[in-house]
Design a protein around this nucleic acid. Structure first.
Lengths: 108, 108
DNA sequence: CTGCATATCTTCTCCATCGTCTAAGATATC
DNA sequence: GATATCTTAGACGATGGAGAAGATATGCAG
């Protein structure tokens, strides 16, 4: 089957996931994207997107253990699957081919 | 006003527009994206996206003259406006900050 | 030279998916 | 029970996408 086409935000979530490693979960992902991409990100948007990515078989999740801190509820950890890695690579490669030689025109 | 958040396809259309210059129009844009990004692109999707970008004030259009060839109907030419340039730059910069240092992990 | 056939380009319409916010729910510690 | 942390759910607009329909040019038969 052909790799799925990723939306813009889906790309950001996948990248953040790779960046944070397998222990990433909702809140840290949200912070990472907000900080790096410098844009407002709501938690709900992140979780929703993670759900979709999991349904499509691009990421997998598992529940962690509760932590010993106030309100330390179990976290849901995510990791990128091979299909997700492929889809992300393809999206970024397409973009790279599109922008090739245009750095100065775009102002990068 | 803050720059608009661009969808994934909107980015591709804007880049193709810069790449092809001010004489770009629906059909050539479609071909350019399909060829460079190597994915199927329908004409309808391109026109729809151009419409939306114009409504948002990111691109401008003008009608050309008919050409002297079979079925040579007037073309609608598009060009990127300053706001479009800014929005695109911002999107690509965010992505670049996200992927920074991850080239090998992603396989680029 | 009139009118139909055909090629090129654009618009319209419909529907699925993505992105976003808000509120509510679950479950841990204090 | 109060409160903090994390996740789920629900609603809705925006974006993405395929294909039919529409507009308008030339080509050609009669």
């Amino acid at each position: 089957m052909a790799d799925a086409v990723l939306g813009e935000f889906e790309q950001l979530v996948l990248i953040a996931l790779i960046r944070l490693g397998h222990e990433a979960y909702g809140v840290t992902l949200c912070d990472e994207i907000a900080g790096r991409a410098r844009r407002a990100v709501s938690l709900g948007a992140v979780y929703k997107t993670l759900d979709r990515l999991e349904t499509k078989g691009l990421v997998a999740s598992r529940l962690g253990e509760p932590t010993a801190e106030r309100g330390g509820r179990r976290k849901k950890h995510f990791k990128v699957l091979a299909a997700g890695q492929r889809a992300l690579k393809q999206s970024l490669t397409s973009l790279r081919r599109m922008t090739e030689g245009l750095e100065s025109e775009i102002g990068l």
